[in-house]
């Protein structure tokens, strides 16, 4: 039995310990906000935060999550009450088809929490592990920069 927290809630998983974290999230916990794009850690669509650090949940066996905390896109906000980063993505056009968006948001969230810089190059480097095929990244980078500024003001 593997016990861990997801978005603040205690969860247990009783299946095979090498089950991928993404499958536990999507299939067992029905948290389908986390997406699978490649299954080999290239695209970053499945990014979640593990103890605050972005990881590709397709590469993490659930046994490594014992006693730790996982954050997924579902924990960032709701349509009625978007988080700061989500609001900036909406206003700046950072989401198009939306499939890379959950992973992109989680990586960006980690960057913001680390106090990451809001300049173009720093944000692009922070997002280097998350592929987006729609936006050409510009509006994503602008959204993250805007969120960094907004957080700074708080």
């Amino acid at each position: 039995m593997i016990a861990f927290k997801v978005n603040g809630k205690k969860r247990v998983f009783k299946g095979a310990p090498f089950t991928r974290l993404i499958d536990v999230l999507r299939e067992h916990l029905r948290l389908t906000g986390t997406k699978e794009g490649c299954g080999e850690g290239e695209c970053g669509a499945c990014t979640v935060l593990l103890d605050g650090e972005p990881v590709n949940s397709c590469l993490v066996p659930v046994c490594q999550v014992e006693g730790r905390t996982v954050e997924t896109v579902e924990g960032l906000g709701s349509p009625e009450k978007l988080g700061v980063l989500q609001r900036c993505f909406l206003e700046r056009g950072g989401a198009q088809c939306g499939i890379c968006t959950p992973g992109m948001l989680m990586t960006a969230q980690a960057h913001l929490r680390r106090g990451g810089k809001s300049d173009d190059a720093s944000i692009r480097q922070a997002l280097a592990g998350n592929l987006c095929r729609c936006t050409g990244y510009r509006h994503i980078v602008e959204a993250v920069a805007e969120a960094a500024r907004a957080e700074g003001k708080r």
Binding site: T32, L90, A95
Partner: peptide, 23 residues
């Protein structure tokens, strides 16, 4: 005018249902 993406909030919250997400 740059109106906000209609389905944006659902996508940004992980609530938009892609085929693999359909129960």
């Amino acid at each position: 005018r740059s109106g906000l993406r209609r389905e944006g909030p659902a996508k940004l919250c992980g609530l938009a249902r892609y085929v693999d997400d359909l129960p």
